[in-house]
């Protein structure tokens, strides 16, 4: 990791930890100046970006987070059975505008099923979901079309919301840039790497500016930088007032979310 990459990761960490924008900019500029004038490997000078960001937060504090807004998604009593096997039992989750919720649990505990029920793609055996506003959904896989270009994906999704082609392309490219990806290429989706393809998948789900965003392990195939960009992007969307639900098994990210629903069978139900 060179100086720029370290600074970018550091900046993303500060943003994630909700350090005020001006303060973060100031701290990053100071660190950059220090590295430029003093030289040296930032990992030796400052340590890992996460640890240094944590130290900064302890020192200067964080900006007060926006107060959670009205309820955007309320799933209650969700039960789902496949044959005799009950994969979800009375699962409940409430997410407000300006919140990120994580759905966690062991493999096969029904995380993706829960998200698909929230998206209205499959029906539960019991329970109901109330959504306020527009829904966006990013599936774990299979959300793209092999023989279309990224721009054509944007046009296709944008047309669903009545967007003209130009604005849809621009919105898609801008959202892709937030993930560190230049989507202006003329490469078919089938030739994109797994991680880039997942960025396309994710970009499609945020294109129409949904009020509620449902993401099923959206980081598959991401490298470290992309992963940081993803959480940076999610934090930005949260600060804009979106309600976000992320299915994740990466527990180290849970300190960055506001609500956790653990679907592991022994610990059914939600906790905060």
């Amino acid at each position: 990791m060179n100086d720029d990459e370290w600074l970018r990761a550091f900046g993303a960490e500060l943003h994630q930890r909700r350090v005020a924008v001006d303060a973060a900019r100031h701290v990053i500029a100071e660190a950059a100046t220090h590295l430029r004038e003093g030289g040296g490997d930032p990992w030796l000078v400052f340590g890992p970006p996460q640890a240094y960001a944590a130290a900064i937060v302890e020192s200067i504090g964080t900006a007060p987070g926006p107060r959670p807004g009205p309820v955007r998604l309320h799933a209650t009593g969700i039960t789902k059975r496949y044959g005799r096997r009950t994969v979800l039992r009375d699962a409940t989750l409430t997410v407000r505008a300006g919140q990120i919720a994580a759905v966690i649990g062991a493999n096969g505990c029904g995380k993706s099923t829960f998200l698909r029920i929230c998206a209205g793609l499959i029906s539960p055996d019991a329970g109901e979901v109330t959504v306020a506003g527009r829904l966006g959904y990013c599936p774990q896989q299979g959300g793209t079309i092999d023989f279309l270009l990224p721009d054509e994906h944007f046009v296709l999704v944008g047309a669903g919301q009545g967007m003209a082609r130009g604005p849809a392309r621009r919105a898609g490219r801008a959202a892709a840039r937030q993930l560190g990806w230049d989507a202006e290429s003329t490469v078919l989706a089938r030739h994109l790497s797994g991680g880039t393809r997942q960025k396309l998948n994710l970009t499609m789900s945020t294109l129409a500016a949904p009020d509620v965003l449902l993401l099923d392990e959206p980081y598959q195939g991401f490298d470290q930088g992309s992963y940081v960009n993803l959480w940076d992007q999610l934090a930005r969307l949260r600060d804009e007032g979106r309600a976000i639900v992320v299915v994740t098994h990466l527990l180290n990210q849970l300190d960055r979310v506001d609500t956790v629903l653990d679907l592991t069978p022994a610990q059914q139900g939600g906790r905060r």
Binding site: V157, G160, L207
Partner: peptide, 15 residues
């Protein structure tokens, strides 16, 4: 068959 997985998300996108 190829569009089967894509269609639900297009439905959510407004189609």
């Amino acid at each position: 068959s190829a569009a089967r997985e894509l269609e639900p998300r297009l439905r959510l996108a407004g189609y």
